[in-house]
């Protein structure tokens, strides 16, 4: 078997809040392979977001081994972490995903712009993707002129535009109604199949869990169950 996309061994994370120590992760072992469409599940506070953040190099683990796309992400400098994310990771968050003053198109091409892609390169990537997610004709809209579902689709396009190794989505449907959620999830599943991009969710939304090929249930900062479809 080839090297997994994500390899976590005994990953721990302790937050310090003054005197208090919060053990958010108490030793997580997890591997995720290329092309997966998986979800981290579990009750609020069990450590899903924390784990996702560690994988996305938004934060550093307190202990353990963690490599993503063959790179050790446990001790990246700030600038290196930003570069790593730009090269390997796409993010979709629950809210505040888009820059309010940029249009849908500008938000979508943002990561490519950061990579220094030319206008033409950006257009050839972003335009078809936006059309693909059903936003053709809404390019010039500002985020506040889009529905919640449409906003999340722009975020998905932005995440995919750089052809990342993995898209990390933390509660992407939490602010959407069920129709919009279902539409967004179906779209992500299709993209997973068409482009082979790996998706990892953190959620407790049933709609997500229904579609996920693998559900990793967490409890109190540990992996509790690992269920494949």
């Amino acid at each position: 078997m080839s090297e997994p996309l994500i390899r976590a061994e005994g990953v721990t994370k302790v937050f310090r809040q003054g005197e208090l120590e919060v053990h958010a992760l108490r030793g997580v072992d997890l591997t995720v392979g290329v092309g997966e469409f998986s979800a981290l599940a579990g009750p609020s506070g069990c450590g899903k977001t924390t784990l996702l953040n560690l994988i996305g190099a938004l934060d550093e683990p307190s202990g353990g081994v963690l490599s993503v796309a063959g790179q050790d992400v446990t001790q990246l400098a700030r600038g290196d972490a930003a570069d790593f994310r730009l090269d390997h990771v796409g993010f979709v968050f629950q809210a505040y995903n888009l820059v309010p003053v940029l249009t849908a198109y500008e938000n979508a091409e943002f990561t490519l712009l950061l990579r220094g892609a030319s206008r033409e390169e950006r257009r050839t990537v972003v335009e078809p993707l936006l059309e693909r997610v059903g936003l053709g004709g809404l390019f010039e809209r500002k985020p506040h002129e889009l529905s919640g579902g449409q906003q999340q689709r722009v975020a998905v396009v932005r995440a995919l535009a750089t052809s990342p190794s993995i898209v990390l989505a933390d509660e992407p449907t939490a602010n959407l109604d069920s129709t919009a959620s279902a539409g967004l999830l179906d779209l992500m599943l299709e993209l997973n199949q068409e482009l082979g991009t790996t998706f990892l969710f953190a959620t407790h939304d049933e709609l997500v869990l229904e579609r996920a090929k693998r559900v990793v249930r967490m409890l109190d900062g540990r992996v509790d169950e690992d269920i494949w479809d």
Binding site: G79, A82, G90, F110, L114, R115
Partner: peptide, 16 residues
Amino acid sequence: RREFGVLVAVGLAPRR
């Protein structure tokens, strides 16, 4: 700040 948080998360270098 949340807007900036997302931008940095998706790869905007702090210096930028």
